[in-house]
Design a protein around this nucleic acid. Structure first.
Lengths: 168, 168
DNA sequence: TTAATAAAGGACAAATTTGTCTTTTTTAGA
DNA sequence: TCTAAAAAAGACAAATTTGTCCTTTATTAA
């Protein structure tokens, strides 16, 4: 057994691999999508500048991200005057994991937590079940949480932190 | 309240900020340090090439990382023939957090989990205590875990994953 | 004292991520 | 049909991280 594999048995190494998961672009994308979804009423559309300002991201970069989201049909866009970005009803049911997938791909949920090449369900490394479990729960959370539900929390004026409700 | 601040109340946004924490360099550094520490017996020293091979990192890059570790006195180096890298006794008592500090700095443990500028202990954001708590536990773990204890686990031929012992 | 060995130092290079800018295409309304 | 507004597209640029290479310095042993 190589040292890399050996050391990978240590939970501290795993720990080092578990924290943080998505790119800055993806965070911007989540913010933007939730913002747009939270205003999905009527025929309202939002321009790049407004969205960028709301999510505190660089406008030009926000435009790029919105294009990606639009390409993946996570949000909808309309060109021309009175155009902009908005959410169609079905898009409110999309999971947050779709955003991660569009921006970063899903490898973050799939690769061996140790970075070991030989690890698989068939030949699992010792952490495969124990910690892959943690990650799977996380993925499940991403998959079970819809854009619309997040938007609804915001629109209600109360937001949820896990099981706790904060008023504001 | 800005939308950024507003959306930051959502646990999903927090979730997105908590996973992953340290750079690739830092992971290499942890691997390297634990490897060297695990062989801290006698007068044995290890060269860049050997260490790089053991931790499966690029040799030249490993050299750079070892220099940093040496500069921060996390490991000790000796030039010339029969030289190389090794751990002095006191260095086995150093915490893993020292490695993180040397490689990435400690800001990862200190910045507001939401990226909000106005957040502090005096003016905490709603997640400050709830999730900063999670991170603080993590930091505590890093601080309470010594290089030597990790090395000892390895040397014993059994490694710990949290409270569970794996034989190999 | 010299030759060989190995880390130290630092410039440089590649890759990736983040961010910008200009031109093109689409759409709405006058 | 023309004009203005706004996204689409994609080249370009900056910043950061990752990685390489060459020269210098220190150490050991003959």
């Amino acid at each position: 057994m190589s040292f890399l594999e050996f050391i990978s048995y240590l939970w501290i190494i795993r720990l080092v691999n578990i924290i943080k998961m998505v790119s800055k672009s993806c965070k911007y994308a989540i913010r933007a999508t939730v913002f747009i979804a939270s205003r999905a009423n009527a025929e309202e559309r939002f321009g790049v500048k407004e969205i960028a300002a709301e999510i505190e991201a660089p406008p030009a970069f926000t435009a790029k991200i919105l294009r990606t989201l639009s390409k993946y049909k996570i949000i909808t866009s309309l060109k021309g005057p009175y155009g902009g970005f908005y959410c169609e009803k079905y898009q409110l049911d999309l999971a947050v994991s779709e955003i991660v997938n569009a921006m970063d791909g899903m490898s973050v949920f799939k690769e061996c937590v140790m970075g070991l090449h030989q690890c698989s369900d068939a030949h699992p490394c010792p952490m495969h079940y124990k910690y892959a479990g943690t990650r799977n729960e996380l993925m499940k959370t991403f998959q079970e949480t819809s854009v619309g539900s997040l938007a609804a929390d915001l629109s209600k004026g109360s937001v949820f932190i896990k099981n706790e409700v904060l008023e504001n």
